[in-house]
Computed example of a mutant assay.
Amino acid sequence: MPNPSPSAPQEESLIVYPCSFPIKVMGLKHDLLLPTVTKIAHRHDPFFDAASVELRESSTGKYLGITITITATNRAQLDALYVELSGHELVKVVL
């Protein structure tokens, strides 16, 4: 009888949780972009401090870059946050 195959090794993370984790969000400059991004951040990090948000407008003023810093507690939290941000119609890029 053959030996069962060994289970796949667990991915090792380079991130040590919990930690402060900056995320850059870019989208068309729109009145609802900033409140939408902060609302999503609060959903994934109840202790998110909106006062820590950094904004950067593009040179043409058409786009807005938003840097949020959350307290990352695990990979699933980060994945869920990236999925929700990336899926929003106002958001063009999440880094």
Rank of each mutant, 00 (worst) to 15 (best):
V37H: 05
P18V: 03
S5A: 15
V83P: 01
I23D: 13
I15V: 12
I15L: 05
L28W: 14
S20N: 07
H30M: 08
N3R: 15
G65I: 00
A8H: 13
A50H: 09
A72M: 05
H30A: 14
K92W: 12
L95G: 03
E89H: 12
L14M: 05
A76F: 11
E12K: 12
L78M: 08
L34F: 10
T38R: 08
L85Y: 01
V37M: 03
R43G: 15
D31I: 15
H44S: 04
P9D: 10
L14S: 10
L55H: 04
Y17K: 00
V16A: 04
S13N: 07
N74H: 12
R43H: 10
P46A: 12
H42T: 15
P4A: 09
V37Y: 05
H44V: 04
E89W: 08
L90R: 08
G87K: 10
P35I: 09
D45H: 11
F48A: 11
S52M: 09
Y63L: 11
V25H: 08
A41T: 05
L14N: 08
P35H: 09
L28K: 15
L81N: 02
S59E: 14
V94W: 06
N74V: 03
V94R: 05
L90A: 06
I66D: 00
I15Q: 06
E84N: 01
T38D: 04
M1T: 08
F47A: 08
Q77F: 11
K24N: 06
R56F: 06
N74G: 05
E12P: 06
L28G: 13
S86P: 01
F48Q: 10
Q10E: 13
S58K: 07
L28D: 12
E57Q: 11
R75C: 02
V53D: 05
T38Y: 07
I40Y: 01
Q77C: 08
S59W: 13
P35L: 13
G87I: 00
H88W: 04
S7L: 13
H30S: 15
Y63N: 05
L32P: 10
A80G: 07
M1V: 13
E89A: 11
K24P: 00
P46M: 12
E84L: 02
L85N: 00
A51N: 14
N74Y: 01
V91Y: 12
L33D: 06
C19V: 04
V16I: 04
S5V: 15
L34M: 09
Y63P: 02
M1A: 09
S52P: 01
P35M: 08
P22R: 12
G61T: 09
M26T: 11
L14I: 03
K62Q: 09
L78D: 02
L55N: 10
E12Y: 02
L32T: 14
Y63C: 01
S13V: 01
T71R: 09
A51P: 00
D79I: 10
V93I: 14
Y17Q: 01
V16P: 00
V94P: 00
A8F: 07
L85E: 00
P22A: 06
L33V: 13
E84P: 03
V25S: 09
I66S: 02
G27S: 14
H42S: 15
I40W: 00
S13G: 06
P2S: 12
T38F: 03
E12I: 15
T73N: 15
S5H: 13
M26P: 04
V16D: 03
P6T: 10
